[in-house]
C-alpha cells in the first residue's frame, strides 16, 4: 500500500514545488489555496475521518491560529508567530477536547460548531474591548514564500495522517469509530486516543491560519472564524473519501478546480453544484472518490 502510493505522492509534491517556475502570481495563489485546503482537510481526517467524531467547527483552530499569529507576528517575527499559532491551537484542543470528546454523534457535531462560533464572539469581544476592530499585517511574506511554507504543511499533514492511520493509534481510532464500547472493553485507551487525535488535528490548521492572515494582510474575527471554512473541509473530505490520507487530494483538487472554473462568472452555480455533489456522494459513494473508485472490489461471501 505504501509502495503503491509513495511514487505518485512524490511526483505530486515535486510537481507542486515546480508550480512557481511556470506559473504567474495568480496561479501560485490558486496553488496556495489548494495546499491550504489539503493541509486543513488532512488534519480534519486525522480526527474525524478516523474516529468518526465529525468536527463541524475545525475553523476554530484556523481562526485561533490566525489570531495568535497576528498578535505575535509584529512582536517576534513570522517563524515564531506561526509556531506559536500551532502550539496555541494544539494546547487549546487539549483543553477543550477533554470535555468535548465525551459526547458523540450529532451532539459532537453541534458542540464543535457551537464552540467555533463561541470562540469567534469571544475574540470579537476581546478585540472590541482592546479598541481593535480589525488588524493589519503589512509587509508580510510574498505569495511565493507562503506557498512553499503552506505546501510544506500540506505535505506534513498528509504524512501525519498517513502514518497515524497505519499506526497503533490509527487502529485504535478506527476501532473507536466502529464501536467505542467494544474498543474500550478490549483495552483501547479511548479517552487518551481521542484526545491525542484531537490535538494532532489542531496544530497544522493553527499554523495555516497564521499564514493565511499574512496572505490577506488583514485580520477580522468574523472572517477567520467563518463557518464556511469548516463546511468546506467536511465537503472536501466527504467527496475525496475520509478514511485515508489519499482522499483530501482528490476532494480538495476537485473543489478548487471547480471553484476556479466557476467563481468568476457563475458563483451561484458553484454553490448549487457543491450541494448536488455533496448529496450525490453521500448517497452513492459514501466512501468518497478514493473509497469508490480506488478500492478493490469486495468479494461477498455466499
Amino acid at each position: 500500500m505504501i509502495g503503491r502510493w509513495t511514487i505518485p505522492l512524490i511526483v505530486a509534491l515535486a510537481a507542486a514545488c515546480g508550480v512557481p517556475f511556470v506559473a504567474g502570481d495568480y496561479l501560485i495563489g490558486v496553488a496556495l489555496s489548494l495546499a491550504m485546503w489539503i493541509a486543513l482537510t488532512e488534519s480534519w481526517i486525522l480526527l474525524s475521518g478516523l474516529t468518526g467524531y465529525v468536527s463541524l467547527g475545525h475553523v476554530v483552530f484556523y481562526g485561533l491560529g490566525a489570531y495568535v499569529g497576528i498578535l505575535l507576528w509584529g512582536e517576534v517575527g513570522g517563524v515564531l508567530a506561526v509556531g506559536g499559532a500551532g502550539l496555541a491551537s494544539g494546547v487549546f484542543a487539549l483543553a477543550v477536547g477533554y470535555p468535548a470528546l465525551r459526547v458523540r454523534g450529532p451532539y459532537f457535531v453541534m458542540l464543535t460548531f457551537g464552540l467555533a462560533e463561541f470562540c469567534k464572539y469571544i475574540v470579537i469581544d476581546v478585540e472590541a474591548g482592546l479598541g481593535q476592530f480589525s488588524r493589519l499585517l503589512l509587509g508580510g511574506p510574498s505569495v511565493l514564500q507562503l506557498y512553499y511554507v503552506v505546501l510544506g504543511l500540506a505535505a506534513a499533514a498528509t504524512a501525519l495522517t498517513f502514518f497515524v492511520a497505519r499506526s497503533r493509534l490509527g487502529y485504535a481510532l478506527r476501532a473507536i469509530r466502529e464501536n467505542e464500547e467494544a474498543a474500550e472493553t478490549v483495552g483501547v485507551p479511548v479517552a487518551f486516543c481521542k484526545l491525542a487525535a484531537f490535538a494532532l488535528s489542531a496544530i497544522i490548521p493553527g499554523m495555516v491560519g497564521a499564514l493565511m492572515v499574512a496572505r490577506s494582510s488583514y485580520f477580522e474575527p468574523s472572517q477567520v472564524f467563518d463557518p464556511i471554512v469548516s463546511f468546506t473541509i467536511v465537503t472536501m473530505a466527504i467527496i475525496g473519501g475520509s478514511d485515508d490520507a489519499r482522499g483530501p487530494f482528490l476532494g480538495a483538487a476537485l473543489l478548487v478546480l471547480l471553484s476556479e472554473i466557476l467563481w468568476a462568472r457563475a458563483p451561484q452555480v458553484y454553490m448549487i453544484l457543491l450541494g448536488i455533489l455533496l448529496i450525490a456522494f453521500v448517497l452513492f459513494a459514501p466512501g468518497g472518490i478514493t473509497g469508490r473508485l480506488l478500492s478493490r472490489p469486495v468479494k461477498v461471501k455466499p
Binding site: G24, D25, Y26, L27, G29, V30, S33, S134, L136, L138, G140, V143, R215, S216, S217, Y218, E220, Q223
Partner: peptide, 30 residues
C-alpha cells in the same frame, strides 16, 4: 485579494477601481 492579484498579474488591467466596503479595501491594500 485573489481577484486584484488576478487583475494585475493575469488580466494585466491598465487601471483599478475599488471594491466595496472597508474589509475588502484593507484586504487589497497589501
Amino acid at each position: 485579494v485573489q481577484i486584484y492579484e488576478k487583475l494585475i498579474t493575469s488580466d494585466k488591467v491598465d487601471l483599478l477601481l475599488a471594491p466595496w466596503g472597508t474589509p475588502a479595501h484593507i484586504a487589497v491594500s497589501g
